[in-house]
């Protein structure tokens, strides 16, 4: 197990393996999303309160789930990179941030579209989840801005890793404070996703969508980390041999 992980962490090996893995992740992710979309849009029974409007959760909930998981991936990568000085872990953190920001953006937009008929307004500060997502987006922006501001890659890795870890400690506190604030806020309508007992015909497409989004995220993350690895290893022998096979040498 450990030797496998150790091998995976070596850049040339990762570069080769990831190329073979990415198409499978894309295919499996698309399959799950296709099933989830068709079943969710056409076969799941309409919600009693929200009617067909509830079908927005089939994209909103998976996007919100991935937006938070991406931060966890980023913080864990940052922690591993900082403690064990593993370069690949830093590359994972660097790749996860923009993807997490995109999924957070997606969760915000779909949440806002959901809110329009529910609350009669595009944005409701009284909803703790949407407000937390907005702050999560700001955290991603801060992380990416810090990374972009430091030219030296190794230094950018370590500085942004500290920020990611400080952010990870703060996220539960931010969520708690937003919840406390909205519990006092008058007239707040909480986003009701499902309720305690969700009909299986509603639930399974949702689970499929979450799985599909996770697989697509994994594929996108691998692709980005692959690019990162190639760029970071640009001065090494294996990259040279990869770009310029022996026969082609000038």
């Amino acid at each position: 197990m450990w030797s496998f992980l150790h091998k995976l962490a070596s850049p040339p090996h990762f570069y080769g393996i990831s190329a073979r893995m990415i198409p499978w992740f894309y295919a499996a992710g698309l399959l799950a999303v296709a099933y989830g979309s068709v079943a969710g849009l056409f076969y799941a029974p309409a919600d009693e309160e929200m009617n067909d409007g509830f079908r927005i959760i089939y994209v909103h909930v998976p996007a919100a789930f991935i937006s938070m998981s991406a931060y966890m991936v980023m913080a864990i990568g940052a922690g591993i990179g900082l403690i064990w000085r593993m370069k690949l872990a830093h590359a994972v953190a660097a790749g996860a941030a923009p993807l997490g920001a995109w999924f957070t953006f997606l969760a915000l937009i779909t949440g806002s579209i959901w809110g329009r008929p529910m609350w009669g307004t595009w944005w409701e500060w009284g909803d703790p989840r949407l407000t937390s997502e907005l702050l999560l987006l700001f955290l991603y922006f801060g992380y990416m801005a810090l990374r972009a501001a430091i030219d030296d890659t190794a230094k950018a890795d370590k500085a942004s890793a500290v920020l990611a870890l400080v952010g990870a400690v703060n996220i539960p506190i931010i969520h708690f404070s937003v919840e406390w604030w909205t519990s006092l806020h008058q007239g707040s309508t909480l986003l009701k996703s499902g309720g305690p007992a969700m009909h299986p015909d509603m639930l399974y497409p949702l689970l499929a969508m979450i799985l599909g989004f996770a697989l697509l995220f994994a594929a996108l993350l691998l692709a980005r980390v692959r690019t990162e690895v190639l760029h970071r290893e640009r001065r090494t022998r294996w990259v040279r041999d990869l770009i310029m096979p022996a026969g082609e040498a000038a």
């Binding site: 702050l135 700001f138 801060g142 703060n170 506190i173 404070s177 937003v178 604030w181």
Partner: peptide, 14 residues
């Protein structure tokens, strides 16, 4: 400011 503001939000709210 960009880094600190989201982190400082709980303090501001409370």
């Amino acid at each position: 400011s960009l880094l600190i503001m989201p982190l400082a939000m709980p303090v501001l709210i409370f």
